[in-house]
Design a protein around this nucleic acid. Sequence first.
DNA 1: CAGCATATGTCATTCGATGACACTTTGCAA
DNA 2: TTGCAAAGTGTCATCGAATGACATATGCTG
Lengths: 215, 215
Amino acid sequence: MRPMAEPRRRERKKRQTRDALVHAALKLFNAKGYEHTAVREITDAVDVSERTFFRYFASKEDLAMSFVRDASDALIRELAVRPPEEEPLLALRNAFRASLRAVAAAESHPGEEPVYLLVVKLIDATPSLLAAHLRYLHDHDDELVRVLAAREGVDPAADLRPRIAAVVFGGMVATATKQWRTEGSGTVDEMLAAVDACLDQVGAALAGHWTARAT
Amino acid sequence: MRPMAEPRRRERKKRQTRDALVHAALKLFNAKGYEHTAVREITDAVDVSERTFFRYFASKEDLAMSFVRDASDALIRELAVRPPEEEPLLALRNAFRASLRAVAAAESHPGEEPVYLLVVKLIDATPSLLAAHLRYLHDHDDELVRVLAAREGVDPAADLRPRIAAVVFGGMVATATKQWRTEGSGTVDEMLAAVDACLDQVGAALAGHWTARAT
DNA sequence: CAGCATATGTCATTCGATGACACTTTGCAA
DNA sequence: TTGCAAAGTGTCATCGAATGACATATGCTG
């Protein structure tokens, strides 16, 4: 008959090897860099065949992007539960804050650096991963757009505003990440502060001429 | 002694093979898609070795990105010569208009579809190229930031506004391109109109709640 | 246990990319 | 003109990512 929620050993083992692959990969990536880590090395560390790796992940890149997916999903979820009174950009800001905290807290052994921050730094330091990340954002802003449009009761197909808000917000996060990477100690709070700083100046950056002044 | 600007045959031949590679590649890309075109096929069409290809271009991707580089450079140039009275975003908009027109007019035989538009469509339709394109924008916004900051006389290191303006503008171009690709006939004028439409709504998208209304 | 579905392993192959080395062409100078 | 040095190119070998075909092993269900 049908597989019918075939639980137990099989499913557990799958999750087990998957986790082992991710874990081993991350360890190697952080030790010798993404580019200089062969898939072979990852699979050797877990003792599975190379072919198996590509049954779990579409590509080496895909493995690294799994964290991005998680974070993106978390953002969407948090945005969906923000109170409707909050204006779009404030809701995005708060949702980002909540999701980043949640993702950083999850899957990180206390006392150690949050895994998610390691991944962010890895992505930012690896050209091909950065490209993949940007494309992910570009490809998945539709979900964000949907939620934003629903919150405000507008039609996402006819109204450009939700899409624009999502794109601008994404751009600010990307910009803030760039700043965050090059200065400071790389904590979650600093990241949030950087995003806030960017968002706080969007209005000023787009309106009229800029008056010379210290920031 | 030193090479000392050794011009003539050598340089001409180099440009010749380079152009031949680009031309052959573009033809093949548009015929069977970027992914399904092997470097081998390109070099066979030009009758050079595969190794030579990689002496001209760092990668297959790099060849496709050469057009993006040209367009980006054109935008920077146009922005630099915009009258200082124009506000930053208006200057960007006008510079984009001018550069797009220039790039589309260049290297396109009259009567045919501008080469540049073909490339834009190719990039947009090819995931890996889209990723590369986004990364290019992300990596090269510093140049745009410098010019913007210089125009307005602010310090790009201390002031986030030029960077934010550049990122937002880039986001709008990307968004407009997405729209442009999915609806309409894909002309230069439609592209410009799409960018204008996006830019015209940035203010409304970022401020307060959205009132439901037809766009 | 039998029989099935699924997960995994093995093998072969394609394609992008890079290093090492030899050969040819071009430019320059004695 | 001749001869040398440098730049350009070709050939060969190799690596890594990714995919298809096919066999094998493992867990699931009756």
